[in-house]
């Protein structure tokens, strides 16, 4: 069954097109004026201007140091295991290897590599890390001239990650436990 759409009958003035044309020209001219003289541009000129990233943004994962400037990573290799694209490779220190540079830790990795070409910024490593030693930070534009350059080693990751002193895992756990005491779990 054919459906007839009732079109509005145009007046002679509307049929002339000319008022509509002039209206269109006015709109485009206004936009051109706004961009040219008022600087109302929607373009963000990227390398010079950058986004303000939201909290919780998942950028590149870097290793962090604690407040004493020592390595938090204890080389447990959970992140290596959980990493979906297998971007992380950890070389543990071995039996007679280097000791951890902080107290409360047995060891630290001899080498910690993240292949940034493989990394998918999923955040599993951050989630799984028991020591809160790896964080997805706000870097998103990683560039390099070769594949080998894109494999970030421990030194580079630590220097890029910087110090996250505010996060003290065991203090946090203690606070959580204290909070739970106020709401005893009924069995």
């Amino acid at each position: 069954m054919a459906i007839t759409v009732n079109r509005k009958k145009l007046t002679f003035w509307e049929k002339l097109y000319l008022p509509a044309i002039v209206g269109g020209l006015k709109v485009t001219l206004k936009h051109a004026y706004n961009t040219l003289f008022l600087g109302k541009v929607v373009t963000m000129e990227y390398p010079e201007q950058k986004w303000t990233l939201p909290t919780g943004y998942r950028g590149a994962p870097y290793l962090v140091k604690d407040q004493d400037n020592s390595t938090k990573c204890v080389s447990c290799q959970l992140c290596e295991f959980v990493c979906p694209p297998k971007a992380i490779r950890i070389t543990p220190p071995g039996e007679h290897g280097q000791k951890a540079d902080r107290t409360n830790a047995e060891k630290m990795p001899a080498e910690f590599e993240i292949n940034m070409l493989r990394c998918i910024f999923c955040g599993f490593c951050q989630e799984v890390c028991p020591e809160e030693a790896i964080f997805l930070q706000k870097d998103y534009s990683l560039t390099g001239l070769s594949r080998s350059e894109m494999i970030y080693n421990k030194e580079k990751l630590l220097s890029l990650g910087g110090e996250v002193g505010g996060i003290q895992k065991w203090k946090l756990k203690l606070d959580e436990a204290k909070a739970q005491e106020n709401f005893p779990v009924k069995l």
Partner: peptide, 13 residues
């Protein structure tokens, strides 16, 4: 350039 200005863009720069 004119298309850029009309569309609130910057154009080749």
């Amino acid at each position: 350039k004119i298309s850029a200005w009309i569309q609130d863009r910057v154009g080749p720069n």
